[in-house]
Amino acid sequence: MLTFLDFEKPVAQLQAQIAELRAANLGADGGDQIDMGDELAKLEAKSADMLKGLYASLSPWQKTQVARHPQRPHFRDYVEHAFTDFMPLGGDRYFGEDHAIIGGFATLRGRQVMLIGHEKGHDTQSRIKHNFGMGKPEGYRKAIRLMDLAGRFGLPVVTLVDTSGAFPGIEAEERGQAEAIARSTEACLALPVPMVATIVGEGGSGGAVALASAERVLMFEHAIYSVISPEGCASILWRTAEKAADAAEAMKVTAQDLKELGVIDRIVPEPVGGAHRDPKAAIRNLADTIDDELTTLARQDVTYLQERRADRFLAIGT
């Protein structure tokens, strides 16, 4: 069952109506009592139009909800539908294995890459296992290790960013959450191989930057990327989390805004109604785009890649 978001209520109501009509028209023999094909098709078209209209003009706060939709494709879905031969590699060699950040060898359209990303989980059990996609120091240190490995063996790095932020906890602080994030950002910048980062859902603060300091940064059409969550910003500046919608608006968190600000390079289109309505189509779009980016980058030499990465960040603010 598709979970409807608050702002999708009109569509949800229409869909419910259609379902009701269908059920009422169902005869004892399992066939239709009367032919309503035309009527139903009209209603379906109306519903589709409505959805299209809604998604053409989503507010930043609505996009935040879409980016966080529980049925939005997650890391495991990309692994299943866009990549082949994924071989996860575990552990930071210092402390442990973090399930919020996953990485390993993978093949994209015949090209060997190092794939790293956040996994939020899809049901209660898996969400707990993956700590809701909030990485701990050992997760970022694993990413550093895998990036280093990729660099030494000439594998381009592909990252899929989807986190509300790095985990705020006692042990995370004790083990140096800040240091792990800083070093992971540095590891991105140091890569001697191409790196393409995509904000696929939520790009939450330092926990996102640590895996997104690439020469090419892509973003899904309805993904968000921000310095702090809209709720966090609202509770600090407006002194109430209820102003999250205002904060989302003010902070400019959408792909469209960030493209204009020069923070991201390319927007990956989502199917009408968001990636969660047709995950396979969304994943295909992303795979096409990453493949295209990697093809272009494959022609560049190391110095060019590193300088381009450095220059894009140095240019921000000037």
Binding site: S205, G206, V209, Y225, S226, V227, M251, L261, V263
Partner: peptide, 9 residues
């Protein structure tokens, strides 16, 4: 906003 975050890299 995001421009402050970009000061990290």
């Amino acid at each position: 906003g995001i421009l402050s975050l970009m000061q990290m890299p």
